[in-house]
Every structure is written in C-alpha cells, then in structure tokens.
Amino acid sequence: MNDVASVSADGSTYEAVSTRHYTFVELAEIYNQTRIDYIVPMPMNGRRLEEYAHFYDVHPDASMVIVDENGNPVALGMLGLRGERAWITRLGVLPGQRGHGLGHFLMETLLHTARRYGARRVQLEVIEGNQPAFRLFTRFGFIETRKLLVLRRAPTPVSLGEFAIGETRDMDVEEILETLRNRIQNDPVTASSWLDETESLMNAGSLTGFRLVSTDENEWIIYRSATFQITHIVLKAKTTQTALALLQAMHNRHQSNDTKLENLPVDSPFWAAFQHADYRVEFTRLEMARDL
C-alpha cells in the first residue's frame, strides 16, 4: 500500500503516504517538528522511534505521513495493530500547517486503514489539556475511557517506613513470560494501557521479575531494566502494603536507576503504593476509544 488517499484543502492537495517510505530518522524529524510547541514535547531520535515502533507493534504500512503537493511532510500519524485492536499514536500536524483539515484527513485515513487491517476497536491517548486534539478525537466518535498517569521517580534512597520487605524469589525468563501471559488484562480498573500490555513487555525485553515468597507467591512485580532507567512496571499485589513492598524491593535492587512509569490508571489500587514510594506525576493522559 502506498498513497491511499488525497484531499484538497485551501487550494492545495495533500496525500497520505505510508511510513514504509521513510527512515526512522526522517520520521523522527517529522514527529519532532509536529510536537515542537506541545505542552509536553517528547522529542525522539531515529533509534528511539524505531524502538518505540518495535515495542508497540506500530505497523509501517498502516502508519501515514501526509505530504503536500511538493512532497514535503506536513503531518504524521502512526498505527499500532494487535489482532482486532488498533492504537493511534504519534499523531501531529506541523504548526504552520494546522487549520487546513489535515488532522481530520489523517484521522480518516488511519481509521480507514485500521478497518482494512481487520481492527474492530481503536484506542488512543491524548495529553490532558490538549483541547484541539481532544476535540478532533471526540468529533470522530472517540469516548474518554479513563485517565492515565505518567509518573517519575528519581533514584533516591528507599525508605522502608513501617512496611518490611518480605523475602523475594527471582523469576527466570520462562516464568516471567508465563506470568505475563496468564495475567488478567481485561479488568476495567487495573487493565494495562497499550504501553504495558503483555505484547509490549515481551517486545521490549530486558525484563526482570520476582515474587514475594512470604505469601502464596501470587504477588509479583515485572519491569524492564535498561541502562539508567526502569520502565514498564507491572505488578500484582493484594494490598497497598505488599505493592509497596514489591516496589521497595525493586528500587533497592536498582538504587541508581531513574524510573519512568507511563500510563498507570488513575483509579489503580496501587497508586497509593506508588505515592508512598515517592513517584511524582509528570503529566496526565486521557485514554479514548471507539468501535469501528
């Protein structure tokens, strides 16, 4: 699939071209230009965008660059695909090109493409406060499903406080993968966002996990431990105290690592544990979804 659609706006014609025709360095440059004036600019280099696409099953043929009549990129939107579900991400229009209906064209194109790839439901996230994007998604029938927190934790010493860390038992790779495969993902409160779904963690790799052995071993934490940074934390705990014990044990093992946790549901029963462990809100996203 190459050029899938074109639209005329303000006397100009624009076309949608699949991202397969661009390198990740080129796509990162386009993406960065679309975000240059955003509330929370999150620039990426080519390597980081390539990693992002791999982690989150972003499909190069289903993702689109909008170009003007001279072939200059003016907008970007990417599409992750997992079975009958699709995820719109990295969507943006260059600041000087807004107000020409390009966001509308991009959304139409991505939804059309998602249908062609067999998706029956589409989800996305928008930073809270980005009203133009929120209005665009609402016009396309997306409904807010929940709020998601993006959290940071500096590598400060862990205070045990009143909670003692139970004994832990490390999981090997097989057990980590088995645990992830068996976890319940459809609970409306604790369900992971696209970024922390089992597929994302398996794609990301570099996973570490352990269980609390003082219980029935049904309380555990799994996370990605990369250079300098812990990310992709998922856990199962019966109480705030045991969730905190798992977090404390993790941070004691990685005392010099920065931590970034994206998209913890604001209603998560573990939010209190993260707060106790000195996690701070960097910003909030709204998750939105619609059926196709």
């Binding site: 280099n45 980081r48 500096a154 300098f228 940074q229 010099s256 690592n257 920065d258 970034k260």
Partner: peptide
C-alpha cells in the same frame, strides 16, 4: 527535560550520582 534520546530527568539522575 524533553531530549530525543535520554529523558532530561534521567540525565540529571546520572549527574547527581
């Protein structure tokens, strides 16, 4: 804070050590 390869917070975390 918004850097294309490593988050600014992570850079600061490394420097503070």
């Amino acid at each position: 804070l918004g850097l294309p390869d490593i988050d600014g917070q992570t850079v600061v975390a490394v420097l503070r050590q």
